[in-house]
């Protein structure tokens, strides 16, 4: 007897909850035969602004979570993803990947999470310094998260690309608001379910689905976003993001890579991109 499959409703992921877009709008994702896979939420600028409020509110408590704990939370995300890898492989295939590529991508994504989990309590030592000043002061420089980071995720390798960009940002104590791959958004929302069951506090990662043309401008110009990451090669968009970022001297980060499976896509230097250096002085003379 045939059984009717239960299809998943894909929604947004904001503040640890799965709301529909406040705008009530949607866009469709089809497989390569033109059959409907899902109606995705077409997130609005207001959804983005709401997400930023939440990301800002939880940022300092996330940054103050111990480094050891943050590492364990990232490792937990990897554990959860490992347990659900078949689902992600299937979803990537549905989005048009070959089975072999889909498998590589999911396995690499899990390993990448483990990689950054391990950096959680080490990168600080790597990027900090005690500075030998010529006066009687103890002087040191350490790194701190830049704050709230807006992310436009890569179009392709929609799972691995997304994880490769947000893992270094959140392990560094930032909170993120992500616009998922426009053409392949399914795995981003399923990944939100993984995050939601992995002790990542609500609001640390917020994921929207929608259109770059609509949201990129708001993401780049928002006055309470400290940094924006754009993954892609659209030079016009890079220029407009850079211009709008100047409104509040936002830090802009551009990744033009096509292949995120490469080992060069994981590095403590990617964590450093969303860190600020703070130098502290104190007299030592009594």
């Amino acid at each position: 007897m045939s059984r009717l499959n239960i299809q998943k409703t894909y929604k947004l992921y904001i503040g640890g909850k799965f709301p529909r877009t406040e705008s009530g709008r949607y866009f469709t994702i089809n497989d390569n035969k033109g059959n409907l896979i899902a109606n995705m939420c077409l997130a609005s600028r207001k959804d983005f602004r709401n997400s930023v409020v939440i990301a800002r509110n939880v940022q300092s408590s996330w940054a103050n979570t111990t480094a050891l704990n943050k590492g364990q939370i990232l490792y937990r995300v990897a554990e959860m993803l490992e347990g659900r890898k078949e689902q992600f492989i299937a979803e990537l295939i549905a989005q048009g990947e070959t089975p072999a590529n889909a498998k590589t991508e999911v396995l690499d994504a899990i390993d990448r999470l483990v990689y950054y989990a391990g950096w959680s309590d080490k990168y600080q030592q790597f990027f900090s310094a005690v500075n030998p000043v010529s006066s009687s002061h103890f002087n040191f420089s350490s790194v701190e998260p830049v704050g709230v980071v807006a992310v436009i995720a890569p179009e392709n390798q929609s799972l691995l690309g997304l994880i490769s960009v947000i893992a270094p940002a959140i392990v560094g104590g930032n909170t993120v608001v992500v616009l998922a791959s426009e053409t392949k958004p399914l795995t981003a929302i399923s990944f939100a379910e993984v995050l939601n069951s992995s002790d990542v506090p609500g609001g640390v990662v917020n994921i929207l689905t929608g259109k770059k043309a609509e949201l990129a401008g708001q993401m780049a110009s928002h006055m309470d976003v400290n940094s924006i990451i754009y993954c892609g090669t659209d030079e016009k968009l890079i220029k407009s993001i850079s211009e709008l970022a100047s409104h509040n001297v936002k830090r802009t980060i551009f990744y033009k890579k096509h292949d995120w499976t490469n080992e060069s896509c994981e590095s403590p230097y990617l964590i450093e991109k969303t860190q600020e250096v703070k130098t502290t002085w104190h007299p030592t003379e009594i």
């Binding site: 002087n139 001297v249 600020e276 250096v277 104190h282």
Partner: peptide
């Protein structure tokens, strides 16, 4: 802030990184 002075202020040194966060 990028530079914090504890019990001192306006100290500078070639070996000490200087610069700001946000709109600084």
């Amino acid at each position: 802030a990028g530079v914090i002075w504890g019990n001192t202020f306006n100290k500078f040194d070639a070996a000490s990184p200087f610069g700001g966060t946000k709109e600084s």
